[in-house]
Design a protein around this nucleic acid. Structure first.
Lengths: 285, 285
DNA sequence: GCTTGTCGATACCCCAGAGGTATTGAACTT
DNA sequence: AAGTTCAATACCTCTGGGGTATCGACAAGC
């Protein structure tokens, strides 16, 4: 199976519409229809249910959609990392969520520099981006946050675990409490929890305001439009917000993640610096 | 980048010889040379060092070799699992090393059957094969053994941990001891430890006999040609061998592994049955 | 009911490019 | 210097991927 065929199938499977898929692939519809038929003939598998002019995925089609996405990411990752290895020899790209894991990151970079490591290009990006960048090869390592990021397929080392706190507007009744439970926050219809984007960038329906980044979140809380649950170390800047510990929120673990089977000495050295600096252990080897 | 190009490059990078690589790919040498040049031109990266008529990999070439292997496996895995999903709906292929993890496996299958799961096709295969089968899609789940198998890129759940024991021919001086250390075995030049195959099927040089499977191993020990270090639960059948506990051998952990991002309900159910039956926890989610 | 619009499949054409053979030319070996 | 090895080049063939025009089935509108 060629990556071209995979790209075509994934486009069709996601759009469930040959015309739109062809559009997205910048090609005409007839060759796309033919390519999918040919793929089905070669695999000897029916991937699409063509009842009338509606199309739906067969169970086998579902499998190829899921596995194909992973495979395509792996190919793209290989290509990008090869390009970067040639263009900037010895350089490493580290991706992390802007505003998160600040202390961990600075400690990590200091330890790495002290050990004489190569140049690290730190990319501070949006929600969910570090994971995507690591998957498609735009990054060599990433700092991810469990349980929010999907880490399957990566190798990990744990760096830091912390509790979460509630952010509330000053003057709110709950703001004076010494500690809170998550259910206390959920019981406030006037102060809903915000909605974060799904991996595909869309938002699920719900009462809370849709939120994109940390700054926006702080602003919304300050305006009394939402409350929030954030890791203890999340910066609150000078915002006039109340911070109340949560006793039953899931703890957040910061991990350093890298693609499997990595042989890059630079990345290995960075991981070593990170883990010995934080004196933590490796989860998966 | 197309999988064809990846296949070609990997063949050349492994053989470091266009003629042999072309041979392996069942094609003529000139089109292969051209394909690689074209790949380098498209990526704008020099992958091979052509000094005279010798060939060597550039650093970028090393990256592409490593990452490309993983990516190719992912594509092949997607294809095979799609084929199997269509050919045998609901069926799961579980791969494990023949003769290993017997009790764990039977307990697992019982728990799964009790929970009303689908049909499981159990493949008992050779050293290192379960891992390969999981990587290239011939299996949906595998029982692997840490620290021997390479588990990077998979999701895992721990099932069982056990110590290792020494196997010695009856009558050997060490056979009467109550316990041994690994260094005791290594200090016996007349009774070397056997050599197991590397992932590529070749054997490293060394004093011990090259060994392929468990039966062969038991025979060699019985003949007084080798000693062995095996997990406690490894079956010794009726062989007349001495079994002595080892106090400092690395413990062996049996894990159930599956490809990342799996949405198959059948596999999820099997993993659930395995972990609740063994009452153990999941390592990576 | 007939029309119109939508959407996937078919028919037919074109040419980029993948693969083959014959050959060259550079780099080692003897 | 002659011979050998091995990648690169020249040149040819033809598969098959992509385009346009069109058909045929189905749904909605009047």
């Amino acid at each position: 199976m060629e990556t071209r065929e995979l790209r075509y199938f994934i486009a069709v499977a996601e759009e469930l519409h040959f015309g739109r898929a062809a559009d997205r692939l910048q090609m005409a519809q007839p060759p796309l229809s033919r390519a999918i038929q040919q793929l089905e003939r070669r695999l000897e598998v029916s991937l699409l249910e063509r009842s009338g002019r509606r199309i739906a995925l067969t169970p086998a089609g579902e499998v190829l959609l899921n596995e194909g996405r992973v495979a395509l990411d792996a190919v793209r990752g290989a290509e990008r990392r090869t390009r970067r290895a040639a263009a900037e020899p010895g350089q490493i790209v580290l991706a992390t969520k802007a505003g998160a894991a600040n202390e961990v990151l600075t400690k990590l970079l200091h330890a790495y520099r002290a050990s004489g490591g190569a140049h690290v290009d730190v990319q501070l990006v949006g929600i969910g981006e570090p994971e995507r960048m690591l998957r498609d090869g735009r990054a060599d390592v990433a700092l991810l946050h469990l349980p929010f990021d999907e880490t399957s397929g990566f190798e990990l080392a744990e760096l830091h675990t912390e509790g979460q706190v509630a952010l509330l507007p000053l003057g709110h009744p709950l703001a004076k409490r010494k500690r809170l439970r998550v259910s206390d926050l959920e019981a406030q219809p006037d102060l809903p929890l915000p909605r974060w984007p799904e991996p595909d960038g869309t938002y699920l329906d719900g009462p809370g305001p849709a939120v994109r980044d940390h700054v926006q979140l702080l602003q919304l809380v300050g305006l009394g439009r939402a409350c929030a649950i954030v890791p203890e170390s999340a910066p609150v800047f000078g915002s006039a917000l109340a911070v109340v510990p949560l006793v039953d929120a899931e703890p957040v673990t910061t991990v350093i993640a890298w693609p499997p089977h990595l042989r890059s000495v630079a990345v290995a050295e960075l991981v070593r610096a990170a883990t010995t600096g934080a004196s933590n252990e490796i989860l998966v080897t």
